[in-house]
């Protein structure tokens, strides 16, 4: 398991691994939103939590199809499936690697992009915390979508269509935490719901992902 994790991390940071692409995409989305809605600080600061959450979500989506497709192209997915690792463990490690290479950088970058959108002072901590709790769920749900579409030739667009509706609850709770936090309101309820959702997805979805991967391998 640890071998798989270190390999995936090594592959991500080596040439052609695509590490940092999501981060750059996140930055561009943030900048484009400012261009789209205008430079007024009052308006930007009001929509900043939501924009940052959507930007992080889309940046996360961008790299999902690499989770299994690369391993499938060169045959290592077949070999992994015959290895003495449970497939549930493999998909969990894959999701973890995706989070470490995509989700975590987004979480760390989000406060800085908050500055660009004049996020109100109390919002930074809550934005950071909500992304920290919410992005693992995005990775795990995305891994399920990637496992569903791994055998398909043009799976990218379909992957988005399948995964985005599944992202709805995470986005709602996560953005709500950030928004309430920025407005100085109490965030306890959405934060607990977000955490529950994240842990639930983490505990249950690997079984579904492994099941669809098994179907797609045969």
């Amino acid at each position: 398991m640890r071998a798989l994790l270190t390999r995936d991390l090594a592959l991500a940071v080596r040439a052609g691994g695509g590490f940092g692409l999501g981060l750059a995409f996140f930055l561009i989305v943030t900048v484009l939103v400012a261009f789209g809605v205008g430079p007024e600080a009052a308006l930007l600061s009001e929509i900043a939590p939501g924009i940052l959450w959507i930007g992080a979500l889309l940046a996360c989506l961008l790299s999902l199809d690499r989770i299994f497709a690369l391993d499938q192209e060169d045959g290592s997915l077949d070999l992994l499936a015959t290895a003495p690792l449970p497939l549930e463990g493999i998909v969990t490690v894959k999701a973890l690697a995706h989070w470490l290479t995509t989700g975590l950088p987004l979480v760390l970058a989000a406060p800085f992009l908050g500055v660009l959108l004049s996020l109100p002072g109390p919002g930074y901590a809550w934005l950071f915390l909500s992304l920290l709790i919410g992005t693992p769920a995005l990775s795990v749900i995305g891994t399920f979508g990637a496992a569903l579409t791994v055998g398909l030739k043009r799976g990218g667009l379909l992957l988005s269509l399948l995964v985005l509706p599944l992202y709805v609850p995470t986005l709602i709770f996560g953005a709500e935490v950030a928004r309430r936090g920025a407005a100085g309101l109490t965030v306890e309820t959405p934060l607990l719901l977000l955490a529950g959702l994240s842990f639930g997805a983490l505990a249950l979805l690997p079984f579904a992902s492994a099941a669809v991967l098994r179907v797609n391998l045969r």
Partner: peptide, 15 residues
């Protein structure tokens, strides 16, 4: 207890 080797070698070109 079987080791499988298919048409593809399962190699990572960046490693």
């Amino acid at each position: 207890a079987l080791a499988y080797a298919g048409h593809l070698d399962g190699l990572k070109s960046a490693l």
